[in-house]
Amino acid sequence: MHIVVPVKLVPDLVEELVIDPSGTTLDPDTLRLQLNEFDGHAIEQAILLKERGGGQVTVMAPDVEGVDDVLYTAAAKGADRLIKLCGNFGQSVNNHAMACAVANLIKPLQPDLVLTGVQSHSDLDGSMGPLLAAYLGFPYVGYIAGVTLSDGRAVVRKEYPGGLVAEMEVVLPAVLGIQAADQPPRYVAFTRIRQAMKTASIEEQTVEGLDVSGGPTVSRMYKPEAAARATMIEGKPDEVASRLVELFRELGVL
């Protein structure tokens, strides 16, 4: 069983996001990147599957700031092979271009399973999983919380809003979009990561031909206005309740 996990680094929302003077991208100097949370679950799921049934886990990530930490941490958790994707990854590289290029690198690895995070908060042109699957010609199922493998098939638990779960069977090789691993991503002691830095090696592979044409173009990026303090609603219970009901309507929750 060879499981490939292509992951993505996305803006860390703990940091204040600054819009570039161009007004169409985030300011690269203040941007701090972080492993996409769902990709962390995809790595965990891959390692859990390996621990249960054996096999090899390959984690790949684009060469952006912070990538080495992400890869070594994956190795400390149990990933066998680390691949850094080298190329020119500006913010303009969209998921279609990336998925197409990554698919070309994944094909020769002949994986049985490709796991990705179900989405990231920066997927303007769709999440990686379905795109990757389409370029690979593999089936795709997303929003998965729970995977078991048996003779060439994966049985997955796909979640729908409201908690209903569909159990689906997928013929391998396949791409799965992981929403939550069977167990929350484990903690690795810092000494283990330091060890991995000494013992694991990161392979570099060049990504060529990133074609970003045809995707949505951004003419303006801006921050929604944040109110400094709550707008107070005055009045008797009856009046306030009526106003709240109006608000619920506007918010689309009623």
Binding site: A189, F190, T191, R194
Partner: peptide, 9 residues
């Protein structure tokens, strides 16, 4: 809390 490596870093 048991995270000596982190402490040293």
């Amino acid at each position: 809390a048991g995270e000596r490596g982190l402490f040293e870093m």
